[in-house]
Amino acid sequence: MTMTDTPTAMNRLGRLMVDRPLLPLIGLLILLVAVLAILNPGVLSMFWASNTLKIAIPLAMLAACQTMTMLTGGIDLSVGTAATIAAYLTATLAPLIGVPPAIAIALAAAILIGLVNGFGIAICRVHPLIMTLGTALIATGCLLVYQRYVIATGVLIPDFLLWLGTGRTLGLPNSLALFIPFAILVIWAQRRSGFGRLLYAIGANEAAARLSGVRVWQVHFTLYTLSSLIAGVTGLLYLGQIKTASLSLALPLDLPSVAAAVIGGTSIFGGRGGYGGTIVGALILTVLTSMLTLMQIPEGGRRILFGLIILAVTALFIRLTERN
């Protein structure tokens, strides 16, 4: 920025978004809530806010996987599957072998998906999009086979997951008890820890990172394993929230989790973005969905608007930040 620059409104907004990407996103969120309040006066309440938070949290947690993998220029499309498998295993194994072993097996299964992803991406150097789609396909097949053997055992959802998923304390959803430490940890890890710095370094320039002595394959391997573990934990939370074990529980969250990270300003090419924006992105998507539902548009129209708004927000973000 030189003195000769004549900062226009657009330029200034763009600079603001580069420096403080959270502000315009929060502005958009407030705008959406305002529109919602005008469309349907009386809908805004403490109950509504806590409900929105509750719905947004699993999405935001899955979007953490996308944010971290996207920082390195990758993507993880197996998170919905990993979450679903963890939830289904917990619910069906709990009546047979007790809750703690069931959860241990469920998380182990999620981690296994991550290990396979990590092996393919880090060691065989397969494109993350292909690798994670492929493991998702295989894992779904395994789940379908598994389901035939447990169909008779019944389903038990552990009480503490129900408490975490649906309970409220002082009007706030209990899932915040899991989410707030999680979010702080992720943001801290991204900004302050060596691992977080490595993610940005690989995403910004993988060759340069390798030449400066980063063992890129180890980072990728850890990253995709961690991503699946987070997805597995999310699956447990989601199980408590939805209260049914279905074979496609968290699958509809796959693509919205990518959208939440993208709206939050994380670049899909890597090197830029952060989890703070993603959380706001997840909230924006949740408010948007409830707005479209309230407007009583048919399902088809809702999907069209959803897609167009994601596109418009991303395009605007890129247009504004690219000027600098």
């Binding site: 993507i75 999009l129 693509l255 990518v258 959208a259 993208v262 899909i268 090419f269 048919p298 399902e299 088809g300 129209g301 809702r302 999907r303 069209i304 608007l305 959803f306 897609g307 167009l308 994601i310 596109l311 991303t314 395009a315 890129i318 247009r319 690219e322």
Partner: peptide, 21 residues
Amino acid sequence: SKVPDIVVTLAMLFVWQGVAL
């Protein structure tokens, strides 16, 4: 829009699904 192709076609996936419905 200069938005990455993955993101655009992901958004359009919802749009075309909606149109079909």
